[in-house]
Structure formats: C-alpha cells, structure tokens
Design a protein around this nucleic acid. Structure first.
Lengths: 218, 218
DNA sequence: TTACAAGTGTTGTGATCACAGCATATCGAC
DNA sequence: GTCGATATGCTGTGATCACAACACTTGTAA
C-alpha cells in the first residue's frame, strides 16, 4: 500500500474531477455514495469533502448535504473579476522570472492545444489549458499565491462542464494565449498581466453564453 | 444545545485564537488535548483542524502532528508581498463603494486604537486593527475576495504573538491608517491601494524586527 | 560511563455504530 | 379523488474503539 492517507487519495481524486469539470454546477455528492465508489469507509470521504468546502470547491447545500456550487451570474462575474486581477498579477511576476525552457514548454502546450481542438478532444483541451496557465503561475514563484489560484480554479471547475472545443473556442483560446507568450518572452510584466486578464475575460464571456446559472435572487 | 455543529464551534474558537495571535509560530496542537479542553470528542476537532490546514492556518508538522506554521524570512516576505497586492486591490475597490456610515466607523476605530494603545491593551489593539481592515474589505463587496483575505490573515496570525503596543507601534499604525481613510473619503482608488499597501508593508517591517523565524534552509 | 535495545506512551487514521433532522413516500380517512 | 398523518429511508454528525507509525524513556549490558 502506498504511504499516503486514504483521505489524501480521496481528496486528490475529487479535486481532479472537479478541476476537469466532471461535475456540473449544483450536483450533489453524498458521503456514503462516494465511499462506496472509492471503496473506503465514510471517514476519509467526509474529511476530504470538508477540505474541499474550505477551499470553496464545494458548498453545503440548503438541504444540509454537500454539492458543487451553483452560482448566480453576479457571482460568476465576481469570480471572473478577481481571477483577472490575481492571475494577472501572477503573470506579471512570472514575466521577470520565467526561463527559456519554460517558455518553450508554453509554446509546446499552445501547439498541442490547437491539435487537440482539431480532433475535438474535450478533456485533453481542458487539461492542456490548465497546464498552460499553471506553468505560468508556477514561474511566478510564490508559495502563497499558488493555493489561492488553485482555489479559484476549483471554483470555476463545475462550469467547465459547458466547455466544448467547437469551431470557435480553440481559435479564440489560441488568439488569447499567443499574446501572453509574446509578452512573457519580452519580459514585459504589464503586457503579460493585460494579456492574461484578457484571456480570462474572453473565456468567461464565452462560458456565460452557454452555461446555466442560479436565479439572481438567492 | 445550540443549533450549530460542534466542529463549527471548534473551528471558530481555533480560528479566532489564531487570528488573535494566541499561538506562537511552530506551536503544535494535538487532537486529544484540544478535544479535552473544548469538552468534546476527537471527531469535531480533527475536522476543524483539517479545515484550518486547508486554509493554510495550520500545517502538518514533520512529526505528523498539527501545528502553527513556522515561516522562514523569505516566506514571510512572500506573504507580505501578496497581502499588499490583494488587500490593496480590495481597498481600491472599496474606494468607489464605501458609504458615509462605514467611513465614520473607520474614524471611530482609528480613535479607539489610539486609546487602546495608551492603556497598552494588546489584545484589544489587535482586535481593532483587524476590524479596521476588514471593515474596508467588506466594503469592497466581493464574496470571492473575502475568504482569500481571511486565509492570508490566518497565515500571519501566529506572528501577531510578537505584536505589542509599545510607544512606537500605535503611533506608526495611526500614521499609516490615516492616509487610508483620507483616500477612501476622496474616493481615490489608487491612493487607497497605495496607502493600504504601505500600512501592511510598515507593519511587516516592524514585525520582522522582533519576530523569530525558521532557519533559511528548510 | 556509554551505547543500544526493549518497552511504553502518544500521535493521527480509519472503521463502525447510534442518532437527530429532514424529505419523501405510503397508506388511510373523509 | 384529495388531503393529511404516519412511516420509512436517507442525510450529515458525533462518539468510540482498534491500530500502525513514531518518539521517547527506561533498563541493561559492555
């Protein structure tokens, strides 16, 4: 048996599923069902769920059970706005620290995303987009910033259910990723920040067109 | 019995203690000891601890037990830097949204802090400083930003052990809080951001002079 | 006196059970 | 057929127990 906790394993499994958009917004998760699916007892599952609630990846539904958050449009815009600011800042920091090797990796990912989109591989597309962004944030070199950004990504996770690399999305993504790479190459912090914010902004706009949200009231 | 969870109660108790600097950096906490002190079983305590670890308020020590994080100087500077950026942004947002009533509240708190410091009331001083900042952040009106900032405050929490309102600190705090209020009154977002960042910067500088840190190596 | 080994206590972890709150279904009365 | 009360099952929650990993102490032998 590996030397890691069961709850750690459960946590990672759920976290990855959430980040990949495996659960739509408002989907409810029960301790016992997950425990059964993962072949463990309730103990590790409830602690993993609680940790995800602390990271805002899950919420406690009104009926006192766990589930993925269902946002209103206003909440979605708030999240998008904060992401643009914080992840933009991370890109700015990365501009002065990123090395040649990492820049090459970004080029590779960008190329692979175009390929993945042509073959309409949804999961791979999401995965590569995630890798593109986190390669940059990693380069920012802040241990404090990293978990904050991860939490933000966990929050939008469920809305990635609506992402599909149709004819438009991958082209747009390529168009918004390109300026980020260029700015990072030049070491231009302000441009990198603006370009990355624009990418998030655009992606959010597309998502808003196809996603479903909670009633404004709540 | 009150209608809230036991783990919620334990969580709030620990969280408040941490934010008030009740535990010094590197202090270890055991589940059974806390359960005994709070007169509950281990169950609610371990879930509360796990939640605090997720919020970076606690860490898992190398000896496999829980404890408050002991930072290196570099980590402390990283945290300070991110705080200046994120909380500064919150202040900028607040500048265009804050109302007259909230501004008056800030004036009150500022005045009370001077009074608290003359009587050398350490705990009250920390509490008022916290209220000053969070009154501003609340005014920023972002449900996404708020828990992020709370997590940042939980991370510096243990280092508030070293805060003491001696002859210097309260004067400095007043000197750095004042420009924040002035900028917010004018609705000047850029000035508010700069003033708040300066406050965090100065406070961190003072703290660094008296606090103890982990060895640079780790 | 020193070194090493056995033992003891403490740690977090996982499993299991009992229970209260709640939603829903089911059954009976009108 | 409709309404209401009872019952049933499901939810998270808390308590308790057993256990493996580890730290530390204690005792013994050289």
């Amino acid at each position: 048996m590996s030397r890691e906790n069961l709850q750690e394993r459960v946590y990672r499994a759920l976290r990855q599923a959430l980040m990949r958009g495996a659960f739509p917004p408002g989907r409810s998760l029960t301790i016992r069902a997950l425990a059964g699916a993962l072949k463990t007892s309730a103990m590790p599952v409830r602690e993993a769920l609680r940790q995800l609630v602390a990271e805002r990846a899950l919420a406690m539904l009104p009926n006192r059970s766990f589930g993925t958050p269902l946002m209103t449009v206003a909440q979605f815009d708030d999240l998008r706005r904060i992401r643009m600011r914080i992840e933009g800042f991370a890109a700015a920091e990365a501009a002065s620290r990123i090395d040649r090797e990492t820049l090459l990796r970004l080029e590779e990912i960008d190329a692979e995303m175009a390929a993945a989109s042509r073959r309409v591989r949804r999961e791979r597309f999401i995965e590569l987009n995630q890798e593109f962004h986190f390669t940059i944030y990693e380069a920012a070199g802040s241990a404090v910033l990293m978990p904050i950004i991860e939490s933000l990504w966990l929050q939008i996770g469920p809305y990635l259910t609506f992402v599909f690399p149709d004819g438009e999305r991958p082209q747009v993504t390529h168009a918004t990723h390109r300026p980020v790479i260029v700015a990072l190459k030049r070491g231009d912090a302000a441009a990198a920040q603006a370009a990355l914010a624009a990418d998030i902004d655009k992606a959010g706009e597309i998502l808003k067109r196809v996603a479903t949200f909670a009633a404004e009231d709540g």
